[in-house]
């Protein structure tokens, strides 16, 4: 469990990081928190020729919470996002989901943006980016662009970001008025990758009836999946909505795989249970926020 030889660069500017990435080509990998990358290296499941450590690049460790949403820089640790009251005030789902990311030691090192760029379908923040309709900012030697979540995730551990590029931030839109969120997951052990997880967002209309119910799952598909369950509960007051029916609807929309820890059927069972629970909780919050 020792990595294969690689060279290491720790540039102190984004331009220099991009220059190294350009020079080194396909074999170069960006290192931020290292919580996914370093185990892959040690087990020789990945053998990059160069690691470009961006931890010295200034300005990437900022959380900017404004009216339109929360922008999270590439070096913001999960723990910092979890603690950010400003971010939670704008988009409560961020802290709710981050609390489910692994254990404190991993949250202290691992980065939210790194987790998204890694595109693990078990990663909580991929689902949050998808559910909130967020995007990432990608810097390349040719300039900076924004990539919508729907165009980002191509498959497990695979994104549309190619060539010399650094994902410099992720943007999560603010929670809309009369809306509530919830996040829940079932893991074999506390802090493990979820066997199944669900993040939900419920929005009420001005009469406090359900206008929208949307959900994103983790560990259910190859990429984060967002499903619209509004039809199951639309127009119902919060306390009269059949959240279990929304769960059943969701079960028909997903196509999970089985693995060592959960059969496909069991994942589908959890999709139903977690969907019903989280929707009820999110709707209750939406009702509070509508008061």
């Amino acid at each position: 469990m020792k990595p294969a030889p690689f060279s290491y660069a720790d540039p102190d500017s984004l331009d220099e990081a991009l220059a190294v990435l350009s020079a080194e080509g396909e074999g170069a990998k960006v290192l931020a928190g290292g919580q996914s990358l370093l185990p892959l290296l040690n087990m020789r499941l990945a053998a990059p020729t160069t690691l470009v450590d961006i931890n010295r690049v200034p300005g990437l460790d900022q959380i900017e919470a404004g009216g339109s949403g929360v922008r999270v820089g590439a070096l913001v640790r999960h723990a910092a996002l979890l603690r950010s009251a400003e971010a939670s005030a704008v988009q409560p789902l961020l802290a709710r989901a981050t609390a489910n990311v692994a254990h404190p030691a991993i949250r202290n090192r691992g980065t939210t943006v790194g987790s998204i760029a890694h595109a693990d379908p078990s990663g909580e923040m991929t689902a949050v980016l998808a559910l909130t309709g967020g995007s990432v900012t990608v810097a390349t030697p040719d300039g900076t662009s924004s990539v919508d979540w729907a165009d980002l995730f191509l498959g497990p551990l695979e994104t549309s970001v190619h060539g010399p590029a650094v994902v410099t931030s992720a943007f999560f839109p603010a929670l809309a008025p009369r809306s509530g969120t919830a996040f829940a997951e079932v893991a074999r052990r506390k802090g493990d990758y979820a066997v199944c997880g669900a993040g939900v967002m419920v929005t009420l209309d001005e009469d406090r009836r359900v206008a929208s119910a949307r959900v994103a799952y983790i560990s259910v598909g190859l990429v984060p999946e967002v499903h619209d369950l509004t039809d199951a509960v639309v127009g119902r007051p919060v306390d009269a909505a059949d959240w279990a029916a929304a769960g059943v609807m969701a079960q028909g929309l997903v196509d999970p795989d089985g693995d060592l820890h959960a059969s496909a059927d069991y994942r589908r069972l959890l999709v139903g249970a977690l969907t019903a629970r989280t929707l009820a909780s999110a709707a209750a919050e939406a009702q509070e926020r509508s008061a």
Partner: peptide, 8 residues
């Protein structure tokens, strides 16, 4: 026995 096996 795990939850998925108990479900089965």
């Amino acid at each position: 026995i795990s939850p998925t096996e108990l479900y089965d």
